[in-house]
């Protein structure tokens, strides 16, 4: 069998091909320069951006996020963070498409509660239906409910993005069993989005068979974000390789030492 490094293992989403399985959020950084350094270190190719009112008091030469992340180097993933209804989410993504000259790959998230930031799956499904009909390729943030995940796929979402735990919590993967069911049933990429706190969380997600991991806070709020970006890149690659390699079975004990039993010095 070929080594994985010698074979093409790109992440394919809606017919687009990406060399990295780590997707990065661009929020909570101190500067655009820091954002760029982190993304360079992570080697991510997909970066999420939020859509907000422009600052009307700005000076003409004020830099913008998109100038630091040129479209010829990265695929933007405009999100609907902060939207609590399908109406708001659809409006936001139509504006994003206009802003980004027709770019139609988006991250849909409709939240249900400002404290927990738990997704409202009913509003999410409603929005997804309309957006897909309107020509969007929808990567969808959702709960780790396998039935909802399947419904979102059936509607036509191009990637299912269940939470590992709540947004910004850093609690890691709280229900690996549900994620396994979602992965087992899905025919589109499954990308863990939200809740990753440290490198091992990302590795576990990939070992479970996730196609990618999307994170923001775990890197942005690390004491050293650039070092954490490096750790996350390795964690995602490592977990992916372990998944593809196929892990050994777990046993309580094996009575099978790694060194030969024969030829012991007596």
């Amino acid at each position: 069998m070929d080594k994985i490094l010698d074979t093409n293992d790109d992440l394919i989403i809606a017919g687009r091909s990406f060399t990295s399985r780590l997707l990065i959020g661009t929020g909570k950084y101190n500067s655009f320069k820091e954002t760029r350094s982190v993304i360079d270190e992570s080697q991510s190719k997909i970066v999420t951006v939020a859509i907000r009112r422009v600052n009307l008091g700005q000076t003409p030469d004020e830099p913008s996020l998109l100038e630091f992340l040129p479209a010829d180097e990265f695929t933007y993933l405009p999100n609907t963070a902060g939207c609590y209804s399908s109406t708001e989410a659809i409006r936001t993504l139509r504006l994003a498409r206009e802003l980004l000259d027709g770019h139609n790959l988006v991250k849909l998230e409709v939240l249900g509660d400002p404290e927990t930031l738990y997704p409202n799956v009913v509003e999410t499904i409603n929005a997804a239906k309309i957006l897909i009909k309107d020509g969007f390729d929808v990567m969808v943030y959702t709960s780790d409910d396998p039935i909802i995940a399947k419904q979102l796929e059936d509607i036509g979402c191009c990637a299912i993005m269940p939470l590992a735990s709540l947004i910004g919590s850093g609690m890691g993967i709280l229900n690996p069993w549900n994620l396994e069911i979602i992965i087992d049933k899905a025919n589109v990429p499954v990308i863990v989005d939200a809740g990753v706190g440290t490198a091992s969380d990302a590795t576990i997600a990939m070992e479970l068979g996730c196609d990618g991991v999307l994170m923001n806070t775990a890197i942005a709020l690390a004491d050293n974000p650039i070092l954490m970006a490096s750790a996350m890149r390795k964690a995602v690659e490592s977990g992916r390789e372990a998944f593809l390699a196929g892990r050994m079975d777990k046993k309580l004990y094996s009575a099978s030492p790694s060194s030969p039993i024969k030829g012991l010095i007596k």
Binding site: T48, A50, L66, N216
Partner: peptide, 26 residues
């Protein structure tokens, strides 16, 4: 308002305008 029609239409008294851009977000 599509970019193609920036020079074709008018904004009138009482209109509600939203101007948006991309910012950092997760």
């Amino acid at each position: 308002i599509s970019k193609n029609s920036f020079d074709e239409i008018y904004i009138n008294d009482g209109d509600k305008i939203e101007i948006i851009g991309a910012v950092g977000g997760g």
